[in-house]
Amino acid sequence: MEARWVGPVVGAVLFIVAALVPYVADGYWMSIAVTIAMYTALATSWALFSGPTHYISLASGAFFGIGGYLVATAMSDYQLSFWLMLFIAPIVSAVVAALIGFATLRLSGVYFVIFTLGLAEMIRNLVSWVQNNFLGSRGLYVLTDFTEDHIYWMLLAVCLAIFLFGWWLSRNRLGFALKIIGNDEEVAKHVGINTALSKVILFTTTGFFGALVGVIIAPRYSYIEPNQVFSPELSFLVVIMALLGGAHRLWGPLVGVIPFTLIWEAITISFPNSTTLFLGIAFLLIVYFIPNGFAGLIEKYWSRMRA
């Protein structure tokens, strides 16, 4: 078999195995599987943009929140269908991402991080205010017939779409452009790359997929509050998982998401008051000891074994 087909074939097999999980997993493991699928989608999509460009986006929570909030408002207040919102919310979020991108991605990475840092919180404040003053603060419900299994399969489909997109990107001009931008933005401009536009396009896809995941996961909570869906913590979790796995490989975030979700689950149950501390320690461990993530470690051992 040709080497370049190994990845896609392994990927396809893993995908089929993953699709069969609901037939064997019980309620507890199913809920963990949903969480893993959710973070795999978010972290992989994050890494497609932040991996090559090194722009650290903390906007995941905001996009995710836009998805969750829009589907809840539309279903509770306007009797629109879930499926329609599955279509509309990601587009709204992508537009928001594009606007943020045009304002910040022309500038250095620091401005971008800072802008996205408070974004979820800011949108939450704005949404709460609008809701309290103009819409009346009624509860927002997302009532569907979906079971955890359905949510899981939908998320898995999103993961597949993101992986296919990433695979396509790796063999296409846009992906190549981002790689060059990450190496040297000045050179990128001088070989004819519209650097700002390339970054904005990729960031827009992060916005799209973030909201898509937010819509799909909403039925799991059924009662939606802005305080809960616009979660700054989610943005940080996505960053940690992607970096832990390694943002420079398409499969990197996946190998970070699985172990981290399991540990995170254990910690939130056993030490519910120490989650923030743990998050801080995880950040520090990654920066100091595994700067290239698990993917980096795996590649190192692999090349050592072959040498």
Partner: peptide, 8 residues
Amino acid sequence: GISFALVG
């Protein structure tokens, strides 16, 4: 990381 650790 430092920030989160301190908050914790």
